[in-house]
Every structure is written in C-alpha cells, then in structure tokens.
Design a protein around this nucleic acid. Sequence first.
DNA 1: CTGAAAGCGCTTACAG
DNA 2: CTGAAAGCGCTTACAG
Lengths: 332, 332
Amino acid sequence: MDTTKENKNYTIDDIARELGISKTTVSRALSGKGRISPATTQRVKEFISTHNYSPNVMARGLAQNKTYNIALLLPADYGENEVAFFREFMNGICKTAGKNNYDVLISMVDGQLERMIANHKIDGIILSRSMVDTSSQKYLKETGVPFVVVGSSTEDGVVCIDNSNMEASRELTNILLMKGMRKLVILGGNESYQVTQNRLEGFMNAHRDQKIIIDYSRVFLDIDSYAKASKAVEKALAMDADCIVAMDDYVCNLVLECLNEKKIKVPSDIKVASFYDSKQLAHNSPPVTSLHFNTKVLGENACGKLLSMLGEKMEESSEDMNYQVILRESTK
Amino acid sequence: MDTTKENKNYTIDDIARELGISKTTVSRALSGKGRISPATTQRVKEFISTHNYSPNVMARGLAQNKTYNIALLLPADYGENEVAFFREFMNGICKTAGKNNYDVLISMVDGQLERMIANHKIDGIILSRSMVDTSSQKYLKETGVPFVVVGSSTEDGVVCIDNSNMEASRELTNILLMKGMRKLVILGGNESYQVTQNRLEGFMNAHRDQKIIIDYSRVFLDIDSYAKASKAVEKALAMDADCIVAMDDYVCNLVLECLNEKKIKVPSDIKVASFYDSKQLAHNSPPVTSLHFNTKVLGENACGKLLSMLGEKMEESSEDMNYQVILRESTK
DNA sequence: CTGAAAGCGCTTACAG
DNA sequence: CTGAAAGCGCTTACAG
C-alpha cells in the first residue's frame, strides 16, 4: 500500500479494473441503487476511501440530466438593513445545499439567471425576498425550472417559504397576555402585505387562545410615517392601553420616537413590544421585547424545500422552527 | 416556420440533422475553432438563434474537462462593516464571470470548498479578503486548482489582487500638497501589514513627486487605540501640522474623536483626510476628504485575473482603475 | 447479485 | 472546408 499522496484522479473505470468487477457494479455500490452484495459494496467503499476517490459530478450530471447546482437570486442593490439578512440566509442555504452535495450559484446581475437556465447549469432556484416580482415568476414557470420564493407570492402554484409569522406573533402575544396585560394595541404597516395579515392573525389568535375579546379599534394599520404613528399612539394612550405591539422594527422605532417626544416612559407608563427584531431595538433604552427570527434556519428551510422538490429525500425534518421570543426591559 | 414557443431542447445532433451537416461542423461553427466556410457558419448561427439553442455546458465541460464555474470563498461571519464590501465585491465578480459565460459558486461553510474541488465542480477560486490564512493557501497549491487572493499574501507564487493602495494614496497626498499644505502628518495601523506599507509608500512618493522633504517624525504607525491616537494627534498639533492624514477610516475616527475632545476645529484649526472612506466619514461633520475605492471594480479585476489564468482571453483591460479622491469639507 | 452495452451532449485528434 | 469515430466519466435499462 502506498502512502504517497494520491494525485491521480481515479475514475469509476479504474476502480472497476483494480477490483476486477464491472463499472456497473461500482456505480451501483456507490449510489446504493440496485442490489449489490454487501461484500462487493464493502470492497468498493474501502477502495474509494483509501484512494480518495470522488465521482466527477459533471459526468454524473450529464448522465442523469442533473447539475447538482441551485441558483440563488439576489438583488444587486439591497439596502443596509437587509445585508445581514442576506448573509445569514446564504449561510443557511449553503449549509443544507452542501449537506446534500449541491452547490449554490449566485445570480445578482441582469441576464445571469437566464444564462444559467439556458446553459443547463442549475436544477432549481431560490428567489430571495424582494426578488419576487410577478413577471420573473411567470418567466420561471414557463421555463419549467423548479423554484421556491422566500416570502409570499400572489401567483398560484408557486411554492413559498417564509418565517412563521403567524405562529411567532401568536406566541409573543400570548406571552404578553399571560404576563397580565389586557389591553394591547397593535400597529402595523401596509395592510395589503401578506406578512401584515399573518402577524395580525397571530395577534388575534392569541387573544382567542386566552378567550380575551378584542376588536379592530385596537388595530392600526398602514402606519408609514411619523404622523400616522403619532396619531395611533395618541389613541392608544387615550384608551389606556398597557402595551403597544409593533409589527416590525420600523414601526416600532416610530412608536418609540413618538413616546419619547411625548415624554411617556417605557415600560413604566406603557410597555412596548415588536414582532420583528433589529439591532436598534435590542440596543434601545430600554431594550425592546421582540420576536427574533433565525434567518439562517430560514435559508436552510428554503433550500430543503427546493431540494425535496428536486427529488432529494431530506434527512432531518427540514422545517425547523426559526423564531424565538426575546423578553427585554420594555415589557417588564 | 413555426411561431410556437420552442420547448424542445435542441442538441448539437438535432442541428446537424436539420441542417444536413455533421455535428463536428456544428460544434466548430459554434466555437469558432477550425476553419468552417462562412456560409455554413452563417447557417448554423441562424438556426441556433431562431431555434433558441444554447449548448449544454455540463456536456461541454465533460468533454473539455472544464466546469465554467469558479468558487468564491466567503467568510461565514464577517462583520457589519465588511458586509457592504462583500456585496459589491460579489457583484463585480458576477459581472465579469457572467460576461465570460462562467458562473460563481459560493462557499461559506466548512468543507464546502474541499467538496467542490473533489467533485470537480470548479475551475478556479477567489479567496476573498480575510479568508487568506496561509494553511488554506498551501492546501490550494497542493490541489493545483488555480486561485487568486484578494489582498496580499506572504506565500510565494500566489497571485494577489488588491486595491491600488499605493497609487491612490499617492494621488490623494499629491492633491493635498497641491492645495498648498506643506506639513502633513500621517497616522496608520499595524505596521507589518502590507496595506499599511503601500499607503505609506504612496504618501512618501507624493512628497517626492513634489520635491518636498519629509522624514519619519511625521509618521505614526501602529495606532490601535484612542490613547495612541491621542498622543500622535498631540504631537501633530505641537509640530503645527496643517493636515492629519489617516490611513483608514478606523484611525480617522479616532483622530476625529481626539480633535473633538481637545476642541480643535476641523478644518479651520487643522485639516483631516483619510485613505479609506466609510459612511461615517462621509456623514461626519464636517464630511471628511478621502479616497474611495470601487469594490465592484475590485471584484471585476479579481475575476478577470482568475479567468485569464484559466486561459480565457479577457476582452477589455481587466485592470480598471478602482479609486477616486473625494474632496470634502475637512480639507477646505 | 452482476455485466455488456448504449447513451447523456459535447469536443477533438485524425483523415480526407 | 468537412466528417466518422473515439472519448470525457458517469448511469441505467436490459439481460442474465
């Protein structure tokens, strides 16, 4: 047995020859398809591990009409606050892709995805948040390349994956209610967004869970300016709410500014919580209770979903829970 | 002529058959290798464009023993201020990769790169800044896969690409000198870093360009704390410098803090410039004059370099200039 | 449980 | 200028 570094790139033919069996058998021992005697399988496995063989994925791809690549479509110019999102998201995707022997191609310039498809370089696509305009989804449907979109889609027949906004919001709301708060007011952004609906639904469901009656007079949507936030906050104060729940960090920051302006103290005068975390909220004084979503897990889930669409059987349940409630001083 | 959407995936065989020529000829007409009559070439080109043919890159790869993929090695956990860097960098890489019909695979989890290499999925690698520990470079050298590193390397025989720190610093310094400043003081970080040396060299060269004598009493390196910055700033003030040049934004921020603390006004009492820009500097009051590097161009250059190592003939000069001097109020 | 053979869609000596 | 044929390294009916 030679201990020198193996530099030769073994092929399946080499193995067959060295082991005195056919390459069909080698192939099957490697893939686990078809019945092969345990003994032969064993011999093959040993050979490949001592000789450091690894199959040529390009060749396998050609034979199987697969590439073992997926594309991740990224916006070319995402903003500062999304940047952390995309890094973690990519990280999660890479992780589960790698586990399943897939690689991730990135596409962030015009025409790149089209080229990948034309060149047969990918088996599937992940459309990241904010890349999901309807026309590109229509285009993708036409090409027939499987894809998942992160977020929500209005197109039908499109597979979406997102943070579990409803469940998470429900959980945070439940916790607030269990802490004894009874009069929660909720402020959110664009009413037509799916995410707004989901978060609101979670909020409502929690009230139902605890048999607490709530009506829409405590719901303020389409908050997209300081002025609107200010009005909503005034109403909340007027109705003597004990906590203001913001659907996202943007709205929450508006709320905090309003309260600050009006010299209302958090949490002594009124409590505050957010359905979406951000560094600012964590470092606010006082720090704000909020939901924290694990974007890496979101990436893992998105990739897992896509791979199973590609016929891969995923090992673990690929739908890990990806949120947690972080209780901070603002609801003390 | 059918106007229906072409769904069939044409192969080179189909084209050959339809056109009544051999697939050898089709292949050559497509690749431009070997002599083919202009007429046949024309016919083939027409056919492929009307029938929307694009070659199967996996198959071509197998035949040529190439993949038309490059890997981009990214740190899994880069910090906040690097995040913008990596996005732009990736953008540049994608752009020139795409132009040359290459795709870029991302690798940010352990073992992923090794797998890509073992699986024959890449032709070359770009090691991004802060991924350049010596051991991985040694490993890569062993594998024989071509790679470029961004930044500087101490390993020999390694191809590096970086911002043109020397040239850029020289230019900014020259501009300051031409504005009439005569006593510049420079503060920089870790002396052993290549980048520090390059920036210092540019600073010195500019003085030489203008026949201005300068000695090392005006150079303060290894500034890595407020205390050290403060001492250097005091000395600068004591020697009546008219401008403090910081080698990077971190050092520059220290300088600004010191000046602020000492109630020294910029630019009326002393001017300030930085060899590396950041948002903070741009939004400082007053905004700080600095060099701005175009990271996207850096990415394009890195990719161009790698592709030419892979035997691709690059179209444009792939070594675009990637910096510019931004004059702001701090040197008014 | 195993093999011979055809095939995946290209490229490229070699021969004309 | 063009083609027939072998080959890239795998997989997979088909046959035993």
